[in-house]
Design a protein around this nucleic acid. Structure first.
Lengths: 278, 278
DNA sequence: ACAAAAGTGTTACTATTACACCCATGG
DNA sequence: CCATGGGTGTAATAGTAACACTTTTGT
């Protein structure tokens, strides 16, 4: 709470440090990826860790997470959701640190990490090829991952991975990557159009030797359903802008990746069926 | 995370206080109730607040919540689940306090509050007649309430409200109170027996001028499904003991309350149907 | 005998899953 | 003309919701 157990005064006692840690997700090259930072100092020097930092005395937790996100990626607005507080007394060997975990979603058209503001190494790791993480970050990540799955199943939050205009196949791919299972195309489309989140823009994307795909856009209030009502500061989502250059880069990163993903999927399926036969 | 944004050292900076706040639920007299404490000092002197207190430097968050629970109620083991961190900078006017919310469930056979360890007033409030709360406690409570609902829908956590032996009607009542809606008796029984949480003990409870009710007991691992895997310290549930005296008191508190509840429900339904006609 | 809660199955409806072909394009 | 992904409907199944009467007891 806020009142000491022994009421009467705000007596002095030692305070722990409070940090925020971010599991920043994005889809890169057709894989669900996580942004990690290589630690340059002890403890866990050389290990990869979730980006994060201490909460300032005058900022909200959500604001702190947003600030960290900005510092790490140069992105000032993104979907952000708290996953809870982690406070094992020994989780940081230096001092008592209580960490509030968040996850963030970066749309695939937000291309690159901020040109490394300092020497720290930051890179995207595919979620299924992660290195060992520092501190208890794998716990935080596990919860973030679960919560993300849950939200994807029950809301339109997957839109946050995509640029403002997208095709239904792209949206489906996002779902498949996060849920880790293949989804039937027709059922998915029934579901997604049943929820009234989307509207066709009338425009289409031509991306190869095949029928062009209709482009959709989220309805203004689509994220209301994904929004994390209840915590201190549910932040709203601003419409992102699209430029020709971004679009091209996006297509290169996302669509080519999609192709690669399909490829991998087919390979895996083949292996599976072959191993089942033998 | 745990490393400062500007890596290199654990530099000095001001730390916020960290507290835990508990939404302690129980069913008393056929109503879902919440344990509140009347504040004896400013700020919010005279207002009711969630029990809570500062986290000690060497204790886990969950352990801190458990300690608060013990201090407030004399109960050392109860279902406890984190609902998240609340950290608006202005939520406590005295100093920066970040609070980690939990909810706890006290079984109805755990009768009374610890004889007031000091002058503080503590009492059970029916959840639908709560007073205005201090700080941002109504926010914390709202989340706790939601999370509880969610868990009840998807797990056997409702068992935590009941003594080790209980009837299906009692379990159903718990569900109805938490979800705030009437449930069909047959469908409920189908559901609850379908999940294999329960087994009939063969014993029965005779409680009035009607057919005796079969007594059930949770299977040892029933709460595994309710357990909050992922946070630092998922705590296990110990079997509670039952004595004759407790049983009698329980029946008085719970069953009489049940009757009262039914009464109220009938009244409300009557009013509703009457108002619909006119 | 009656009031009060315990107990018990079936049917309708709704939501979810499985499934296969034609279409438009670029090369 | 062919390879590639885009787009569409229907039938089976499972899950959920609605619904009413008989049983056993205490008084």
């Amino acid at each position: 709470m806020s009142a000491p157990t022994t009421e009467g005064s705000t007596y002095r006692h030692p305070h722990p440090a409070v940090a925020v840690d971010l599991a920043i997700f994005s889809i890169r090259d057709g894989q669900l990826c996580l942004l990690l930072i290589e630690r340059g100092v002890e403890p866990f020097k050389g290990r990869w860790a979730l980006p994060g930092g201490f909460v300032r005395m005058t900022e909200d937790l959500q604001a702190g997470a947003q600030r960290e996100l900005l510092e790490e990626t140069g992105i000032s607005q993104a979907y952000l959701e708290q996953v809870g507080a982690f406070g094992r007394p020994d989780r940081d060997p230096r001092e008592r640190v209580i960490s509030v975990g968040f996850y963030a979603i970066i749309a695939s058209d937000r291309i690159e990490l901020r040109a490394g503001s300092d020497a720290r190494l930051a890179r995207w790791w595919p979620c299924d090829e992660l290195p060992a993480l520092a501190f208890d970050h794998s716990q935080i990540l596990a919860r973030a991952r679960e919560q993300l799955k849950d939200r994807v199943r029950r809301s339109a939050v997957a839109l946050q991975f995509l640029p403002p205009e997208f095709t239904l196949t792209e949206l489906q791919l996002v779902h498949e990557l996060i849920l880790g299972e293949k989804i039937d195309k027709r059922n998915f489309r029934k579901w997604v159009t049943g929820l009234k989140y989307l509207h066709a823009t009338g425009r289409e994307r031509r991306g190869g030797p095949h029928r062009p795909a209709a482009l959709f856009r989220a309805r203004p209030n689509a994220n209301a359903l994904a929004a994390d009502a209840g915590f201190d500061a549910p932040e709203e989502d601003l419409a992102r802008t699209t430029s020709r250059a971004v679009d091209a880069a996006y297509r290169k990163g996302f669509l080519d990746g999609l192709r690669a993903f399909r490829q991998r999927l087919a390979t895996v399926e083949d292996e599976l069926s072959r191993s089942l036969k033998s």
